[in-house]
Design a protein around this nucleic acid. Sequence first.
RNA 1: GCCCCGAUAGCCCAACUGGCAGAGGCAAACGGCUCAAACCCGUUCCAGUGUGGGUUCGAAUCCCACUCGGGGCACCA
Length: 834
Amino acid sequence: MTSATPETDETRYDFRALEERWLPVWRETQPFRSGAEGDERPTKYVLDMFPYPSGDLHMGHAEAYALGDVIARYWAQRGFNVLHPIGWDSFGLPAENAAITRGLDPRGWTEDNIAQQRSSMERYACSFDWDRVLATHRPDYYRWNQWLFTRLHERGLAYRKHSNVNWCPKDQTVLANEQVVGGLCERCDTPVTKKKLNQWYFKVTDFADRLLDDLDGLQDTWPSKVIAMQRNWIGRSQGADVTFVIEGRDQPVDIYTTRPDTLYGATFMVVAADSDLAAELASTADAAVQAEFEAYAERVKTESDIDRLSTERDKTGVFLGRYAVNPVNGERLPIWASDYVLADYGHGAIMAVPAHDQRDLDFARAMDLPVRAVLDCRDEHGDRLPEPAESGIATTGDGTLINSGDLDGLDKTAAIAAIVARLEADGVGRASTNYRLRDWLISRQRYWGTPIPIVHCDACGEVRVPDDQLPVELPAAEGLDLKPKGQSPLAAATDWVTTTCPSCGGTATRDTDTMDTFVDSSWYFLRYLSPGKTDGPFDPADAKRWAPVDQYVGGVTHAILHLLYARFFTKALHDMGMIDFEEPFSALLNQGMVQMDGSAMSKSRGNLVRLSEQLDEFGVDAIRLTMAFAGPPEDDIDWADVSPAGSAKFLARAWRLARDVASAPDSDPAAGDAALRAVTHRTVADCAGLVEGFRFNVVVARVMELVNATRKVIDSGAGPADPAVREAAEAVAIVLSLFSPYCAEDMWSMLGHENVAHAGWPAVDESLLVEETVTCVVQVKGKVRDRLEVPPGIGEDELREAALGSAAVQRALDGAAIRTVIVRAPKLVNIVPA
RNA sequence: GCCCCGAUAGCCCAACUGGCAGAGGCAAACGGCUCAAACCCGUUCCAGUGUGGGUUCGAAUCCCACUCGGGGCACCA
């Protein structure tokens, strides 16, 4: 019999029909609106990283939102008042590029994409609270970026300085250190160069110690990988500052070193070629040196980072004709300028100890400078390591001091303590800490971002735009040339730029830079809490109720930038008294990426799997289930390895259970098949812990087992009328609602109920979890020789006797004497013969 | 170069963190249903846990050394 109208066939699983049936219902009922003011349930804040509105959703979104949804829906089933919001990180280059290449208005383009993505998310059954959506490009959001900038500026945490910044020649904009990957622009892979510009910064370095130390508290709830990456990035090092007198200069110069114990081994000093100090020292040298230095400095400036990074590179530098004096022994050290010393780390100057630092040794050999060992270093056999001057290999390990005056004989730790104490006593040095972390460069010379709320006035200087004049709205894009040209497009909006000074009322100009979009995402999780608030970024009372985020879900791509900045904002807001916590995300789950045939999917590679096509072919439920079932969430998924068809097949099997149930909704399961009931309750009990441990793939496997067990009972025994079958089918529907909501809702409906999302996690009857007998494995010398069915509460002695009484064991022992018997009641006995 | 993480069946993955290597799925083979195919249903096949040592009554699990793969940092003094 072939049906002519399959869409009306209620006896077959048809994912298209289910999606059409339930999506309108959910649109109506909004099951995931978070609880109102008087809601007594405990709260849970589950947050997915918000997307850039790039158009439609892709496979990466599908994985992230499927996994975040499992967590949010689980806590809702557990009776929590769950906040699970979504929004759009909608400022940034793609909208601007669409405007440039296709003449589209960035606002309209962005809003269109948001509308499309939102409808895709709804179809994808994301359990978002649609009452709290935000988009960072809208003035009612970025107004608070400006407000927060102002607060930071008041505290000296936002400041402007001239400095050499990372510059992308293609995008024609500056980049934060975090946006330079291997010397290339993160966005377009163009080699990054340096440019001296006046730019806005946030003073992240003030928080370096807290950002580092507070990671300890996240040890158990954040991936260790992310913690390691953050530690690496902050890069704290302990050492000492040492003051060197410069001959012919009034001011002495401080250097930073992690090895003050090697101070006697310093044979020259190196200053960063691009530092002010180098330029100043060169300026009083003779003409030939000046010329040489200027040529060198010019070359260093235009050098891209990618050149600097090549490790094989020979050392270069210029002798400045000046000398520094070693404070511990009065030795004269020639001062060189080189690009291997960085201007913005430490003091931009170092003492060079070529015997015990490889870089210094390479430089010394290139320039024919002296090398003096001050440590007696030994290998593991106690043999003295070869002289660095001859071997070309610096001895960077520990050793006993030599050639170091009265410090000779001390080991590294003792020497460091002794030297630092002496330097401090003499006023020429002190213990010091340095960081790899730099302040956060936030200015961008682009249109599509938050205008910096500062007015430049000839009379008053840098003036903050008063709060009551915020937001400083972006001028219309129409008529502006958005093409990158090194200066912000906003500068051309003459009417907008020209303004009155808030302080003196005279004519002034607006700052024309816009903020890095990472500013937007540094505090958005707080805006969700008070979406409509017009007199502040968020309500402290709402923050007290919901924040911090209990569970954050997103890609490891943001392991450094976004998370570090959000942590910085949180600490700054804490210090302003606006919130009472210091870490924004109590727990973090990083999902992996979706790949195809072992590599990232891309149009150019031609291995792009389109989410929309997958959804059309297998349905939302099957795709979501596939994402969860593929493996541990943090692992990458190779789409070639997984089977959405298999997922769909399983969902059909599950759905048929509910279709086949023949008992009444109020039937008493106690009368049902005891074995099935045990499986049901065991599964439900285990799945809770598995979900909380993010073991989603195992949860799905356990539900598959339950489905298989239930089908067996339907096909035999009391059949579809067995109330244990109903109990099992209901449990399947509820657990499945975390993964495949359409199928679960339809099952729930066939079972005579409504709204599976809030059905509540099934109660577990503990008495059903107690097994009547346990299989005890009996080993002889570690090999399994027999199995015994024993009661779970069996005593050790009794079990030992039973095991020794086994015929198979006696055979294996073959009359040998027994040395020990290890009893792990009730599951194992191991008999060790003499 | 330094620091993390991983390696179990043809493939994706489990194994109560030291106690029977297999829960689940994909693929394959065979059978049933069918005029036939697909769907569906059933059955079966498949590894001794990357390599080498060690600890232990007992190791996929702990320790050491390697190999391979993935990631982070990298002229940061």
